[in-house]
Design a protein around this nucleic acid. Structure first.
Lengths: 196, 196
DNA sequence: GTCTATACTACGATAGAC
DNA sequence: GTCTATCGTAGTATAGAC
């Protein structure tokens, strides 16, 4: 029965990841030392290196975790029995804003610029989000708007592109709450709704 | 006549900034050492510290330079005797894509998350871009569409918000040429044009 | 598995000659 | 102003006891 020990192992990893996440939000990925992470997690260097191969490994885990969290939010839209229309999706995304997640995501985008491993995670996550938006829009077009399946698929793909773009802009805006709020979610929602 | 020497001084600074820029694009802001910058610039450590107070100072200068370059591009639109309509602005922005500038900008956004000095530069630049977009749209509404001045001002502000958002999405897309192209500039242009 | 202590490296910044 | 050489420090990762 290695299940129990493996579950505990995963729990420890998560403990480290969450501590690292807090450090990254406060100090930035590159400028937090593993000493910072040990202090924040309450563990020691030896313990951490027993669960991760090195700092880069921790960074990857934190980025993956944060982006997964965001994607699951979108996945919930698509799985809903009453799929929201694109305008509602935008408003819900804006409402579900978590500044910490947004900051991690922005740092990840910056890192993706030079680090292939991070770029990979970011790239596949964007792909996944696009697919999820597509699924959500398609379900809405078919179920609520009565579109034919093939016509809905084509429209959904285009709509998903817009939603990814809006999502990215909201990301920047959410990361800086006191900053210039260029994106008016309601206005964008109206814009997208008008195209329906 | 300190003019000449001051010009030469500015030239040296620019030489260092451009070398640093190349390093940042290749290796990332945090991971390039000042040794890398000296090697790339052909200068020495001593010389560099005669022109900048430290690495953070160089980073600030590079970010400021890159963002200024982008803003000037937008300023040209507003100053044009025949101001482009919003859809054209989007298409021109997409056409003028420089991957290196986009990567620097993304790294800057990531840094802005934790570094107040960079956040300041990024914030004021976004404000400036918003104002420039506003001016460009207002000029277009008045000159080409015959709107009244006060009505144009209100509409221009909203349009500028959309343009900033699209600009930010294009930034992410431009930084990863082989990545998932979520934003279809033509489609977005159509969308904005439809709202006219 | 977890701790403390430490080895080794790389970096930012300065000193001093020219 | 620019160079070379170097100082001090901070950081990653490991060793070895428990």
């Amino acid at each position: 029965m290695p299940k129990l020990t493996e579950a505990r192992r995963e729990l420890r990893r998560d403990q480290i990841v969450q501590a690292a996440r807090r450090c990254f939000v406060r100090t930035g990925m590159e400028r937090t030392s593993v000493a910072d992470i040990t202090a924040e997690s309450g563990l020691s260097a030896g313990s951490i290196y027993a669960h991760f191969t090195g700092k880069a490994d921790i960074v990857r885990a934190v980025v993956q975790d944060s982006l997964d969290r965001r994607a699951e939010l979108v996945a919930a839209f698509a799985a809903s029995p009453h799929p929201p229309n694109p305008a509602q999706v935008i408003l819900q995304l804006a409402a579900a804003a978590d500044p910490d997640d947004a900051r991690i995501a922005l740092q990840a985008l910056g890192e993706a610029t030079t680090d292939p491993a991070i770029r990979d995670i970011v790239g596949t996550t964007i792909d996944r989000m696009h697919a999820l938006f597509r699924a959500s829009c398609e379900a809405w077009l078919v179920k609520s708007e009565g579109h034919a399946a093939d016509a809905a698929a084509a429209r959904a793909t285009r709509l998903a592109g817009h939603l990814v773009a809006v999502f990215q802009s909201l990301l920047i805006q959410n990361a800086f709450p006191d900053g210039p709020g260029a994106v008016d979610a309601t206005a964008v929602a109206d814009l997208v709704a008008a195209q329906t």
